[in-house]
């Protein structure tokens, strides 16, 4: 009886029940971002993103788990261009998770917002609820013209028509690192894992790591005076820290 009462109390607490294994996070330094889109290409290659074709791109159905948003400011000739890399924010209070009727998207023990492709029935409600527009739907059956199917990453499943997909922080790499660390009887180092986008960023604008470790690059970034979260006012509690362009540096 007391056992049930304890469980009830635990299950009534908001947030993740129990302790997270890791709290993966990403930091985006907008001062360093050049908008070169190397991360976009790397993501495409790593995660088997479908190539939807010219017609569907024209209709707004491209699939880019990571995209660089461009915002123009001012009038010619005093014109400025800002880049905003936008990817799944893995929100701690994610609107997309609550709305899924089949629990195809939920929060896992690494603090990640995961998407279970096999469970998805394609109501697209998660995408409608997402304020960041980082969920992408497979409107048609994805196809790779031969021999392009030869370059698919064997560690990542290929999604079928009618399924939602989004950035996973390259969960296959996280899993691999966790397995190795487990074999060696240690924790994964705070900056050990690198998703494809982070790995390929030439200006090192992207940093990935464990926010539970106080000296990881992301933890340091989140303490910066330039740190902010996109659409903070919606209270979705994203784990991606953006460092605004500015004069002051750490």
């Amino acid at each position: 009886m007391g056992d049930y009462l304890d469980k009830w109390k635990q299950y009534r607490e908001p947030g993740f029940p129990g302790q997270l294994d890791y709290a993966w996070g990403l930091a985006v330094d907008l001062d360093r971002c050049t908008g070169c889109e190397a991360c976009v290409v790397a993501c495409q290659a790593e995660n088997n993103l479908p190539i939807v074709g010219e017609k569907d791109v024209g209709e707004g159905r491209e699939i880019q788990w990571l995209r660089i948003e461009r915002y123009w400011e001012g009038e010619y000739p005093d014109l400025r261009l800002r880049f905003l890399p936008m990817l799944c924010q893995h929100c701690a209070s994610a609107p997309c998770e609550t709305v899924c009727p089949v629990a195809a998207t939920y929060h896992n023990q690494d603090g990640l917002n995961v998407q279970v492709y096999n469970r998805c029935i394609g109501t697209r409600s998660c995408a409608a609820y997402c304020p960041y527009e980082v969920r992408y739907f497979n409107w048609r059956t994805p196809r790779w013209d031969p021999p392009l199917e030869q370059q698919l990453n064997p560690d990542v499943s290929v999604r079928e028509m009618g399924v939602m997909e989004k950035c996973t922080f390259c969960i296959q790499r996280i899993r691999l690192a966790k397995d190795q660390a487990k074999d060696e009887g240690r924790r994964v180092g705070p900056d050990e894992v690198q998703p494809a986008c982070v790995q390929s960023c030439p200006s090192q604008a992207l940093r990935f790591g464990d926010r539970q470790a106080p000296d990881s690059a992301v933890s340091k970034a989140s303490r910066s005076a330039r740190a902010y979260a996109v659409l903070e006012e919606l209270n979705t509690r994203p784990v991606i820290t953006y460092l605004r362009k500015g004069e002051e540096h750490d």
Partner: peptide, 9 residues
Amino acid sequence: GVGVAGMNR
């Protein structure tokens, strides 16, 4: 696929 409808992102 639902792509035959006009929906997009």
